[in-house]
Design a protein around this nucleic acid. Structure first.
Length: 769
RNA sequence: UGGGGCGUCGACAAGUGGUAAGUCAACGGAUUUUGAUUCCGUUUACCGCAGGUUCGAAUCCUGCCGCCCCAACCA
């Protein structure tokens, strides 16, 4: 286990912030109950892993629990095969749902009685429109829909009809139970969505017990509710559904009402994530199955040899937010390498062998080298016996007849070190009739064995090798990215997007003997090649098959101009630099120049006041209430627009506990120098909360502003003394430090220092250099 | 054209009125019997754009631009 490295500090993403807030307010009594609710109609993938890590991780962090729930409301699509694979995958990722394994289908009976409750309340009705009719009458995003002719059926009739549906007296599609909400609702989801449909189908769990099945929106909130979920976390596309989620639970009596929270699902570059496309890859035979090591499925990653730890680390590193974004696959690869680096013992293997004969090695002699399994910076002990002889295989790629510039490997007449062994010199190249190199005849420098006295002779390169007589044959499967384009979803077709070289099967490779005796599930590094492990399905003793989990970084290959293995096609989708600049410049009305005659503010600001009678009355009231000539209408308007309106949070201004005269008084405190604008904000909030007058708040909180230099100077000097370096930087032209220093003085004064005076003093000090 | 969301370095992502975190990538350099790892350092992100408020704005206000989601008896 690679747990000795300090865990990355977890960031407080917005969901953790919500939970922290709930725990402070006691909203759920300190409980955190989450759930992972997959539909058992496909295999889980890395995108689900993000959600699993989030839900189970949160529960673990906060000492709560996370349920695993099969969202099996659609009998025609779901299958037990999937419920098993899902459980296996979640468990493999390292999470435990304990007793809390559920099926939405367990709640069907309760859901239908909730449906009856809604029917009786006149909140649901049985509708006989066909699918097409329903679509046609739903309206569009800009036009309202038209009500169903059955919308006003009496509750008792609806109840009778609904019971007929449930009893199986009606054929598929004959009618549905619909929520009675509003056919003109701006949120399309609220336009009387169907809750229950008729499906005479065999369900993988409830068998033929039901012939009606609830739809997602109705089923999901109730499943969460009956399980006592507190935080129902789902992906962004369900944001529109939240209103419906809340509607159902608000309209049912005495039900628990979880909070739905949406976050951005994972998108990965060079990867497809949709079930449909993944299924197509399997069906079209582009991959060998759901667990093909190139697949982003959990099963595929597992078979490739990726560890659960690296997936969890990845989930933590990408964070959780609401911005729709695409994580570059390099980040995932980095997590995989990082985990394997400290986990995998190092061994030697040759993928494409080239014979090397050591001409001066004693005939038939075999030397057993004691070779360390770990590099110097992995704090682990251990070595294995590595047989060395006069007949070896090296990697074909490690020899070049005409070496390019910067070549560190073997070339005619050149020297390299054989890892853990000797330095050899290539004396002779044997080629066949076609000119292909078939053998190298080399001489070995017998004084240079690793660890021996004279071993420190330096040569440019070190290469891997195996002894021909001891080499164990193996098949290597070299996997790389399935797609060669960054955004395969945007590609026209597979043909164009698929990487033709995503799997290279190398038969005739050789591994050192120790590789055959490692535990079956051990992750290994074949030095200079990558991380591997034995394929769990196909590798057998005597017929070894190793999957490459991930290659090593290769700065040599990357530096070679032509050979760059990286993407051939790049579909760039920078949503930046679109011309937004130009467009806005054309459409913007300049606000700076013209001021509104009575209010003295830019027209655009005045418009806010003018267009809303309520605001206008308030502003005018404030202006006329205060005879103090130091207060201009502009000050009032700015205070109202920029501070009061947002603080009021949409409440009618007339109901505010700060009346126009009070607001004018507040402005007066600022112009009079009693408080700063910053403090004014605080006072405003207090007035709104408690109904006190501004002056009373200032008095109670002791906010009176410090403006005299006599009390300010010592504070400024103290801060400057403490931050000498910052003052120097400020003098050097880093004006941002001005804000920092002023802020420090303000903090020291408990917020009472007059900021503009402080700023002047700091500027003076800086100028005094 | 209605409603719901989202725009901070090449990629993720903190930050919620007082010096724009961190990670990956990239680029240098050191160490290295893996062209790996490790370690150091670098890349001036003026925070979608434009105005406004403020001593001070990524953060507050206004307008605009761009992207995503919603019109399955799928989830």
């Amino acid at each position: 286990m690679s747990t000795d490295r300090p865990a990355a500090p977890e960031s407080v993403h917005f969901i953790r912030a919500i939970i922290d807030q709930d725990n402070r307010s006691g909203k759920w009594g300190g409980q955190v109950v989450t759930r992972f609710p997959p539909e058992p109609n496909g295999y889980l993938h890395i995108g689900h892993a993000k959600s699993i890590c989030l839900n189970f991780g949160l529960a673990r962090e906060y000492g709560g629990r996370c349920h695993l729930r099969m969202d099996d409301t659609n009998p025609t699509k779901e299958d037990v095969e999937y419920v098993e694979s899902i459980q296996e995958d979640v468990r493999w990722l390292g999470f435990d749902w304990g007793e809390h394994f559920y099926f939405a289908s367990d709640y069907f009976g309760r859901m239908f009685s909730y449906a009856e409750e809604l029917i009786l309340k006149g909140k649901a009705y049985v509708c006989f429109q066909t699918e097409e009719e329903m679509r046609a009458t739903r309206g569009t995003v800009t036009e309202p829909g038209t009500p169903s002719p059955w919308r006003d059926t009496a509750p008792e009739d609806n109840l009778r009809l609904f019971r007929q549906m449930c009893a199986g007296e009606l054929p598929d599609g004959h009618c549905t139970l619909r929520a009675k909400i509003h056919m003109g609702h701006a949120n399309m989801k609220m336009r009387d969505l169907p809750m229950v449909r008729i499906r005479h189908a065999h369900h993988h769990r409830t068998g033929d017990r039901f012939c009606v099945y609830p739809l997602y929106d109705f089923a999901h909130c109730l499943s969460d509710s009956v399980e006592g979920i507190t935080h129902s976390i789902c992906t962004l596309e369900f944001e529109n559904n939240r209103e419906l989620y809340d509607w159902f639970l608000d309209n049912l009596d005495g039900v628990h009402h979880p909070q739905q929270i949406e976050f951005a699902r994972l998108r990965l570059s060079y990867t497809v994530m949709s079930k449909r496309k993944l299924l197509a890859l399997v069906k079209d035979g582009q991959v060998s199955g759901w667990d093909d090591p190139r697949m982003p499925t959990i099963a595929g990653l597992r078979r490739r040899g990726v560890t659960a730890e690296s997936i969890r680390e990845f989930a933590e590193r990408i964070g959780v937010a609401k911005a729709n974004s695409t994580v570059s696959v390099e980040l995932f690869e980095s997590c995989i390498r990082d985990d394997l680096n400290s986990r995998a013992p190092r061994l030697l293997a040759v993928a494409r062998p080239l014979k090397v004969t050591l001409t001066n090695w004693p005939e038939g002699q075999v030397e057993e080298l004691d070779a360390a399994l770990w590099p110097h910076d992995v704090p682990k002990e251990g070595s294995r016996a590595l047989p060395f002889s006069g007949s070896l295989f090296i990697e074909r790629d490690d020899f070049a007849l005409t070496p390019p510039k910067g070549w560190h490997r073997l070339a005619p007449g050149g020297e390299v070190r054989l890892r853990h062994a000797y330095i050899i010199r290539c004396d002779e190249v044997v080629q066949d009739d076609s000119g292909e190199v078939v053998e190298l005849r080399c001489s070995v420098d017998l004084d240079t064995r690793s660890g021996s006295a004279a071993a420190d002779r330096k040569v440019k390169g070190t290469i891997h090798w195996v002894s021909a007589a001891h080499a164990v044959p193996a098949e290597l499967r070299l996997y790389s990215r399935l797609f060669r384009v960054e955004d395969p979803d945007a590609a026209e077709s597979y043909a164009e997007a698929l990487n033709p070289d995503s799997l290279e099967i190398v038969r005739g490779a050789f591994v050192e003997p120790a590789a055959a005796t490692m535990p079956q599930d051990a992750r290994l590094q074949f030095e200079r090649q990558g991380y591997f492990w034995a394929d769990p399905k196909d590798s057998k003793p005597g017929a070894l098959v190793f999957n490459r989990i991930i290659s090593l970084k290769d700065s040599w290959a990357k530096a070679q101009p032509a050979a760059a293995p990286a993407p051939l096609l790049r579909v760039t989708t920078t949503h930046k630099d679109k011309m937004t600049g130009i467009k806005t410049m054309l459409s913007v009305g300049k606000t700076g120049s013209t001021l509104h005659p009575t209010y003295g503010v830019p027209m655009l600001v005045a418009k806010i006041v003018l267009e809303n009678q309520e605001v206008r009355d308030y502003v005018d009231g404030a202006i006329w209430s205060e005879p103090d000539p130091a207060i201009t209408p502009a000050m009032i308007v700015n205070m109202v627009v920029n501070e009061l309106l947002p603080a009021a949070k949409g409440a009618p201004l007339a109901t505010l506990s700060l009346n126009p005269a009070g607001l004018a008084a507040l402005v007066g405190l600022v112009t009079g120098g009693e408080i700063s604008t910053k403090q004014a904000k605080e006072v405003l909030a207090e007035c709104l909360r408690g109904g006190e007058s501004p002056a009373a708040v200032v008095k109670r909180l002791g906010l009176s502003q410090l403006s005299d230099d006599a009390s300010l100077k010592p504070l400024v000097d103290a801060v400057l003394a403490e931050h000498q370096d910052k003052l120097i930087e400020l003098r050097a032209g880093n004006v941002r430090l001005l804000g920092f220093l002023v802020g420090q003085v303000l903090k020291r004064s408990g917020g009472r220092a007059n900021p503009s005076r402080v700023q002047a003093l700091v500027e003076e000090a800086a100028a005094r250099a």
